[in-house]
Amino acid sequence: MKLTVLAVLASSLAPALASYPITGDNVNCRSGPGTSYAVKKVYAKGHGVTLSCQTTGTSVNGNSIWDKTSDGCYVADYYVKTGTNGYVTKKCGSTSTCVAPKSNQATVDLIAEFEGFVNHVYTDATGHPTVGYGHLCSNSKCSDVKYKIPLTKTDGKKLLADDMKRFEKCITAMLTSKAVLNLNQYGALVSWSFNMGCGAAQTSTLVKRLNKGENVNTVLSQELPKWVHGNGKVLPGLVRRRNAEIALAKKSGSAKALPVKC
């Protein structure tokens, strides 16, 4: 949205440490600019925040700007009364706070095995248009895929690698330093979020328990078996996948994955 002349003047004359009130109840301030990032603080309505910079992220009610506060976390600008829907301070230099670890080969193999390879567009068990190794398309023709369809297996693997980066990043972002995982445990979570979605993972009891510092394998063994439903029914394929993810997490000998230095 374009700023008016008055808004531009107001922002340029505002003091560097201007405080802006929170307009919503119990507004989350997250580790990154999006709803898939871990919650670091919660602001009460009317609480004043100062901004160090602003950046783009997940759109909240049509506003994709996120404000980095002096507390070092990000809050959706929609919930901050700055007087405009545009920028009121400098843009942040980076939209990412952490570099996500790359999944190990065991994780890649697990995802590829359960997703299977289909070179054409099909509808998966939950009703989503899909292609390749479980790539969920944005529309029925999969026009978001940059590779030619029907896919070759080579291009399918490239598409899988592209897709996995997103889930590696969201798992890394949503877990706090209390969640200490090796690459196999991390891989089990990447596979789970790849299958169920980052949004579902972010709000899950599983992530909340890990962020409290509970034993990783205990949490995964108790929580992953709950994620076996599609359209209200238990799907045998999901039961097998959750069991495989738990088995992967319990394998020893893999290097440390999380937490990472940001």
Results as ranks from 00 to 15, higher is better:
67 D>I: 10
212 K>Q: 07
34 G>H: 15
156 G>V: 09
195 N>F: 07
224 L>E: 00
198 C>Y: 00
98 C>Q: 15
219 V>C: 13
158 K>I: 11
252 S>G: 15
176 T>V: 15
140 S>H: 01
16 A>S: 07
246 I>L: 01
52 S>Q: 09
38 A>Y: 02
197 G>I: 07
239 V>Q: 10
253 G>A: 02
152 T>F: 03
112 A>K: 13
112 A>N: 04
142 C>R: 09
62 G>P: 06
88 V>S: 11
6 L>N: 15
23 T>K: 10
111 I>Q: 13
115 E>W: 02
165 K>R: 15
155 D>Y: 12
257 A>D: 00
92 C>R: 03
230 G>P: 00
234 V>L: 03
95 T>K: 13
144 D>P: 04
122 Y>K: 01
104 N>S: 13
238 L>S: 00
234 V>H: 03
62 G>M: 07
16 A>N: 04
48 G>F: 05
41 K>H: 14
26 N>H: 01
107 T>I: 08
78 Y>P: 00
262 C>H: 09
188 A>Y: 12
139 N>V: 04
245 E>I: 11
205 T>F: 00
199 G>M: 10
18 A>D: 09
37 Y>H: 13
94 S>E: 13
249 A>Q: 07
18 A>N: 12
230 G>V: 09
137 C>L: 10
110 L>W: 12
66 W>C: 03
64 S>T: 12
36 S>H: 09
100 A>R: 06
83 G>K: 15
60 V>I: 02
132 G>L: 05
218 T>E: 12
112 A>W: 03
161 A>C: 01
51 L>T: 08
96 S>Y: 08
197 G>Q: 04
85 N>F: 08
65 I>T: 06
57 G>F: 04
142 C>N: 10
18 A>W: 13
101 P>F: 06
86 G>S: 08
244 A>M: 14
109 D>P: 08
224 L>D: 00
24 G>M: 05
37 Y>K: 07
187 G>K: 11
124 D>E: 05
167 F>W: 12
215 N>W: 03
145 V>D: 01
254 S>N: 10
229 H>Q: 11
184 N>I: 03
218 T>R: 13
148 K>C: 06
98 C>A: 15
68 K>Q: 12
129 P>T: 06
155 D>I: 09
23 T>H: 08
241 R>M: 08
128 H>T: 12
120 H>N: 11
117 F>I: 11
200 A>T: 14
186 Y>A: 06
6 L>Y: 15
217 N>I: 11
94 S>W: 05
66 W>H: 10
53 C>A: 15
240 R>C: 08
57 G>K: 10
107 T>W: 06
29 C>S: 09
193 S>K: 05
64 S>P: 14
69 T>A: 01
13 L>E: 02
129 P>H: 04
21 P>I: 02
71 D>A: 14
123 T>E: 08
44 A>Q: 12
163 D>S: 04
106 A>M: 11
13 L>Q: 03
70 S>H: 04
41 K>T: 09
16 A>W: 04
162 D>H: 02
203 T>D: 01
195 N>D: 06
134 G>Y: 11
113 E>W: 02
255 A>F: 14
69 T>S: 01
231 N>Q: 06
182 N>T: 07
79 Y>A: 03
63 N>K: 04
98 C>G: 13
105 Q>V: 09
193 S>W: 05
145 V>I: 09
250 K>D: 15
53 C>N: 15
237 G>E: 12
